Measured scan of single mutants.
Amino acid sequence: SYYEILDVPRSASADDIKKAYRRKALQWHPDKNPDNKEFAEKKFKEVAEAYEVLSDKHKREIYDR
């Protein structure tokens, strides 16, 4: 789930989600993982997609249904 990707509970606040996104984006940024760039790019995209949905109140409500 998007919550698992960002490592936050379903009850996470918008601020918690933003902090988790920043932490995970740094962790999986391809430039930070030169030895495993392809895998890092995949993870980085997953993190971005999760944040896009969970950071938008309307999209998150739909996702949580």
Score class of each variant (00 low, 15 high):
7 D>W: 04
9 P>V: 07
41 E>R: 11
21 Y>S: 02
1 S>D: 15
40 A>D: 04
60 R>A: 02
30 P>K: 06
61 E>N: 06
59 K>A: 13
52 E>C: 11
31 D>R: 08
60 R>M: 03
33 N>Q: 05
49 E>Y: 07
36 N>K: 08
7 D>L: 03
25 A>E: 11
19 K>T: 11
3 Y>N: 00
5 I>Q: 04
41 E>D: 10
32 K>C: 14
37 K>E: 07
34 P>H: 13
20 A>N: 04
3 Y>M: 00
14 A>V: 15
35 D>R: 05
20 A>W: 01
53 V>S: 03
36 N>E: 08
16 D>S: 07
11 S>E: 13
48 A>C: 15
20 A>P: 00
51 Y>L: 03
1 S>E: 06
25 A>K: 12
9 P>D: 09
6 L>V: 01
24 K>T: 04
36 N>M: 10
42 K>A: 11
52 E>I: 11
5 I>C: 08
6 L>H: 00
48 A>Y: 10
20 A>F: 01
46 E>N: 05
60 R>P: 01
47 V>H: 01
3 Y>I: 00
14 A>Q: 12
2 Y>R: 02
53 V>D: 02
11 S>F: 12
43 K>N: 06
55 S>G: 15
36 N>Q: 14
35 D>A: 12
64 D>K: 02
62 I>W: 11
5 I>D: 03
14 A>E: 15
54 L>G: 00
34 P>E: 12
26 L>K: 12
43 K>C: 09
14 A>I: 13
23 R>Q: 13
49 E>D: 10
6 L>W: 00
46 E>F: 05
1 S>T: 11
45 K>V: 07
60 R>N: 02
28 W>G: 02
1 S>Y: 08
14 A>Y: 14
18 K>G: 09
31 D>Q: 08
14 A>K: 08
5 I>K: 04
61 E>M: 08
60 R>G: 02
14 A>H: 12
48 A>G: 09
24 K>Y: 05
24 K>I: 06
47 V>Q: 02
17 I>D: 00
4 E>C: 11
33 N>L: 05
25 A>H: 11
19 K>I: 12
59 K>S: 06
34 P>Y: 08
65 R>N: 15
16 D>W: 07
19 K>Y: 06
2 Y>M: 07
64 D>H: 03
42 K>N: 09
25 A>V: 14
1 S>G: 14
52 E>G: 12
39 F>A: 14
45 K>Q: 12
24 K>A: 08
22 R>Y: 15
48 A>F: 14
5 I>L: 09
9 P>C: 12
32 K>I: 09
58 H>A: 15
32 K>M: 13
44 F>S: 10
49 E>T: 10
17 I>L: 07
64 D>S: 03
54 L>N: 00
31 D>V: 06
17 I>P: 02
31 D>Y: 07
16 D>I: 08
41 E>N: 10
59 K>H: 06
65 R>W: 10
32 K>L: 15
58 H>F: 11
57 K>V: 14
65 R>M: 15
9 P>F: 06
39 F>C: 09
28 W>E: 02
51 Y>G: 03
56 D>F: 02
6 L>R: 00
15 D>N: 13
65 R>F: 09
55 S>T: 05
32 K>H: 14
23 R>F: 09
19 K>G: 07
32 K>E: 10
19 K>H: 13
8 V>G: 02
32 K>S: 14
53 V>P: 00
52 E>P: 00
30 P>Y: 05
5 I>T: 07
40 A>Q: 06
36 N>H: 09
44 F>P: 00
36 N>Y: 08
23 R>N: 13
34 P>V: 10
22 R>M: 15
26 L>W: 12
27 Q>S: 06
4 E>Y: 09
3 Y>P: 00
39 F>D: 09
28 W>M: 04
41 E>H: 10
53 V>M: 05
35 D>K: 07
11 S>V: 06
1 S>K: 07
13 S>Q: 06
18 K>V: 14
18 K>W: 10
30 P>I: 06
26 L>F: 09
42 K>Y: 13
